[in-house]
């Protein structure tokens, strides 16, 4: 029975426990879940909600205010802002989720190895990561994306890489606390090779803190990617990405066409807000110390 010597019974029960875990969420975290689910539906099934093609321009309807035909109005290219805001949810998730996954995939193994091996390797890895964190992430992201080429893929890779120290640090701190624990020594005595100790013994016991951070770090990735787009880095203008739309709309604010920037701005605020609420809720559940201190 792969890969564990156990019976099938256990996983439905585990899933049931997880669902029950959701009900332990605080009201604010539950609100976060609702917001994320709404945006998730919008992102996955944008086509069902959009009233127009997000990148078709109607040259005769440039900069029209909200109306029955264009609920959120039209932008400087005569594109339907409502449809563009909805389509933009794809970019929000499409950047944040892979960026966090990359950050986890780099950060957690580095944290495990650095914490377990210690010594010079630990020093070198942690100093590199400290170096990354010395610069404000937006400056570094700006520089790296500008240097590596302006593409969506580069934005995702850079954000994931820049955020990996967060996860590395969290896991490393837990590994330091556990590496001389009895069960690790008993695993060594049993003859476990290092990789088994890292992934079967240390990983499951050190990952909670890092997992609790994922939603908050996704909020960070959404914010930074929108900021980059606002600055014109990575994602370019007609793409229906919220940051890029806000940039375009910013010019029109002074002349009174508020709807161009306001609607993508509201969408951005809600998504970041929802992810942060969810992140706080997850942290409360996974980290009892934090909950107790409240």
């Amino acid at each position: 029975m792969p890969p564990s010597v156990t019976h099938q019974l256990t996983w439905p029960r585990r899933t049931a426990n997880r669902v029950r875990g959701l009900s332990r969420l605080s009201p604010t975290a539950a609100a976060g879940v609702v917001i994320i689910v709404c945006f998730g539906v919008l992102a996955l099934f944008s086509e069902w909600f959009m009233t127009h093609d997000p990148v078709s321009s109607y040259p005769d309807r440039i900069l029209q205010g909200p109306s029955y035909e264009h609920w959120f109005g039209t932008d400087g290219n005569g594109m339907d802002i409502f449809s563009r805001v909805i389509y933009g949810a794809k970019f929000g998730f499409g950047i944040a989720i892979p960026a966090v996954i990359i950050a986890v995939l780099i950060g957690i193994p580095v944290g495990l190895i650095a914490g377990y091996r210690g010594g010079a390797l630990d020093e070198i890895l942690m100093r590199i990561f400290d170096g990354l964190r010395v610069f404000p992430s937006i400056i570094l992201a700006l520089a790296v994306v500008a240097a590596t080429g302006q593409s969506l893929l580069n934005v995702v890779l850079v954000l994931g890489f820049l955020d990996s120290p967060v996860f590395a640090r969290l896991v490393r701190a837990e590994v330091l606390a556990l590496r001389s624990s009895n069960f690790v020594e008993s695993a060594i005595a049993a003859g476990n090779p290092t990789w088994r100790i890292l992934f079967f013994h240390l990983l499951p016991n050190t990952i909670q803190g890092a997992m609790a951070q994922t939603a908050v770090r996704a909020a960070w990735a959404v914010r930074i990617s929108a900021t980059l787009a606002f600055l014109g880095i990575g994602i370019q203008a007609p793409t229906p990405e919220w940051g890029a739309m806000i940039r375009q709309g910013a010019e029109f604010m002074v002349t009174g066409q508020w709807w161009v920037a306001i609607f993508p701005g509201i969408a951005l605020i809600f998504l970041v807000f929802g992810l942060n609420l969810l992140g706080d809720g997850i942290q409360d559940i996974l980290d009892p110390r934090r909950r107790a201190s409240k």
Partner: peptide
């Protein structure tokens, strides 16, 4: 101390099978 000598997140079956699996 048997309470701390076993990985709290592994199943008993896997803990017993571990040396077999390794060696």
């Amino acid at each position: 101390d048997p309470w701390s000598a076993l990985n709290p997140r592994m199943k008993i079956g896997d803990l017993i099978a571990e040396p077999l699996r390794i060696h």
